[in-house]
Design a protein around this nucleic acid. Structure first.
Lengths: 138, 138
DNA sequence: TTTTTTGTTTAGATTGGCTCTAAGATAATA
DNA sequence: TATTATCTTAGAGCCAATCTAAACAAAAAA
């Protein structure tokens, strides 16, 4: 990670510890939507004394700064998306991989609902089978 | 619950016990998207010996028959939707209530993605503030 | 550079939602 | 009514996530 980026995070009020650096490096450009455990497993190689609490603390801090998003797409497990810009997801029902979809679908609710709800964001979750799993079919 | 409905469930292969009847009656027409705990709390009044396992067993059985849907909208907690027809949801970020939205948005993915994904369903989650919570603002 | 302050990391305990188990109970059926 | 296939139950167990308090380390101040 570059010095500038570290400085950038620091200015956001994040104390930059080696553990946090390792987590940030793992998340940077990562499109696998990892769980806390995925992150822990990766970082514990570098920091064997690493605690799960540190992973959760860091993720919570990043979430508060709007740098990552927490996804509730898998029941009973949080997953994290290091891309904070609005986008959608496709979830493969076979392999459970989560793919990003960067289309702007311009969804607007009809008038009646617009009175009832002040909408701040909208996420679409597509479900089905991905090309990889299609290929493996009989 | 009517005799016909009970017969209908029976024909689907569901053994109709008093506990299941109580759960089904609670779910019928319920738009609050209750959690397992919500259901348990309601039904334990009628069946004090009720076990959480029974709630989960019943919900699992209903899910398999396609009679309800399991929602992953709240991290760390399953919620259930007794309306199995495809529809969307609005979640209020203040009160966390979940509202149904029965609009057909006709969303189609561009060609490149259609090659990559076989889409079976698509759910939209709107987030924001509901009218109730807006009204309570200062 | 040294000191102080403030926030972070850690191990381990704890919580909360959910699942499993094995025994007893009961709805469906013949 | 007798049979059997399934359901219910209490309690144990599992796993993700959170909490705690002491040790520690980064950043700010001196």
């Amino acid at each position: 990670m570059t010095r500038e980026k570290i400085e950038h995070y620091r200015k956001l009020g994040l104390k930059m510890t080696p553990q946090r650096l390792a987590i940030l490096e793992y998340l940077e450009g990562n499109t696998s939507h990892p769980s806390a455990e995925d992150i822990y497993r990766h970082v514990e190689g570098k920091f064997p004394s690493m605690s799960f609490a540190t992973v959760y603390n860091t993720l919570e801090a990043l979430k508060e700064k709007g740098l990552i998003r927490e996804l509730s797409i898998e029941p009973g497990k949080k997953r994290f998306d290091p891309n904070p810009s609005p986008h959608h997801h496709f979830i493969c029902e076979r392999c459970h991989r989560v793919y990003d979809i960067f289309e702007d679908f311009q969804i607007t609710l009809p008038g009646e609902h617009q009175k009832q709800f002040e909408i701040k964001e909208c996420e679409i979750i597509f479900r089905g089978v991905c090309a990889d799993c299609k290929r493996k079919e009989v």
